[in-house]
Computed example of a mutant assay.
Amino acid sequence: MKKIILGGLVAAAAFAFPGMAGGMGGAAPLNGKPMKGLTDNTVVAVLNGKKITVKDVNNFLQGMTADKRIKLQELPAQHVGQFVKQYVDTLVLYKKAKSVEKTPQFQALMKKMAVDYWLKQQLNNMKISDAEVKKFYEANKDIYFKTTPKIKARHILVKSEKEAEKIINELKGLHGKALEKKFAELAKKYSTGPTKVNGGELGWFDPKQMVQPFAQAVEKMKPGQITLKPVHTRFGYHVILVEAKNEKNYMPLNQVKLQIIEYLKRAKLQKEIQKLKDSAKVEIKVK
């Protein structure tokens, strides 16, 4: 959770202060140990004789993110000075900038800023249960979280079709471990490919990574089967043994949990926003 919070902090700060994104590496999560000894009353800067405390900077950071959990005491030590400087720079510029506060344009902008802050606050405070996450994951596994089918195989690559046919004849009638053992022996003896030292082992792969004739052949085969005819590619003639298939492979829930939570939060907030819009009596006079 802290990674997402910190990532949001950097994104908000970068938006508020041009140039910060470059120095901080964009919206990447902040990593590192916190600075020791910081309390709310610790003085971190002095501007024209006025002390600036950790609490002052925390209010600033929490204002940008609408998240009261964010504190300077918990941020990586190497970034503390930069956040303090951002706040001090804001105070310096505010002396000039505050002159716009009474203009009608600024007053109108304040409404937009309040809405943005409220939206951030709603997202930060929204709770999504593990049950909701799991329900969404299970209902959408085949839509969002399915990975490309994987195949585990071995192959023997030779130069001629006759040589490949001879190897196939030696393997016919073998099954299971006996087939795997014999295949590995023949691969080490005859294969011209770089995998010969590993008994022709290709490991798990996506068929799309392979040349088309090879991919088409393994996609039709079942685990434990060998090619009954040599497979010809630009590299030569292949004898293939498919060891295993994983046709329904999904990204694990713990890997996508944070993304699901963020999605569900935004979906819930969108419904709340729509309810508010629907409850208002609005008449737009222009097309």
Rank of each mutant, 00 (worst) to 15 (best):
A131R: 01
V133D: 01
V133A: 10
V133K: 14
V133M: 10
K134M: 14
K134F: 10
K134P: 03
K134N: 11
K134V: 15
K135V: 08
K135P: 01
F136G: 06
F136I: 13
Y137R: 01
Y137Q: 08
Y137K: 00
E138D: 15
A139W: 06
A139V: 07
A139C: 05
N140I: 02
N140V: 10
N140F: 01
N140R: 11
K141C: 11
K141Y: 03
K141W: 09
I143T: 03
I143P: 01
Y144E: 12
Y144H: 11
Y144S: 12
Y144G: 06
Y144T: 06
Y144M: 07
F145Y: 04
F145P: 04
K146N: 11
K146R: 12
K146I: 00
T147W: 00
T147N: 10
T147Y: 01
P149K: 03
P149V: 06
P149T: 02
P149Q: 04
K150I: 08
K150T: 14
K150W: 00
I151K: 05
I151P: 00
I151V: 14
K152A: 04
A153E: 02
A153K: 04
R154A: 04
H155Q: 06
H155V: 07
I156D: 04
I156Q: 10
I156F: 02
L157I: 13
L157D: 07
L157E: 08
V158G: 01
V158Q: 08
V158N: 03
V158R: 00
V158F: 00
V158L: 02
S160N: 05
S160V: 13
S160P: 08
S160A: 11
S160W: 01
E161I: 04
E161K: 12
E161P: 01
E161Y: 10
K162D: 11
K162Q: 13
K162L: 13
K162E: 10
K162S: 10
K162Y: 00
K162A: 12
K162R: 13
E163P: 09
E163K: 14
A164C: 08
E165P: 07
E165M: 03
E165N: 14
E165C: 06
K166Q: 15
K166D: 13
I167C: 02
I167V: 14
I168W: 01
N169W: 11
N169G: 05
N169F: 12
E170Y: 02
E170C: 05
E170V: 02
E170L: 02
L171K: 09
L171F: 06
K172W: 12
K172M: 13
G173K: 09
G173C: 07
G173S: 09
L174D: 10
H175N: 09
H175F: 14
H175Q: 03
G176P: 05
G176Q: 15
G176W: 10
K177P: 00
K177Q: 13
A178E: 11
L179C: 05
E180F: 10
E180Y: 12
K181P: 00
K181T: 15
K182Q: 14
F183P: 14
F183H: 06
F183M: 15
F183K: 15
A184W: 05
E185H: 02
E185L: 07
A187N: 05
A187Y: 01
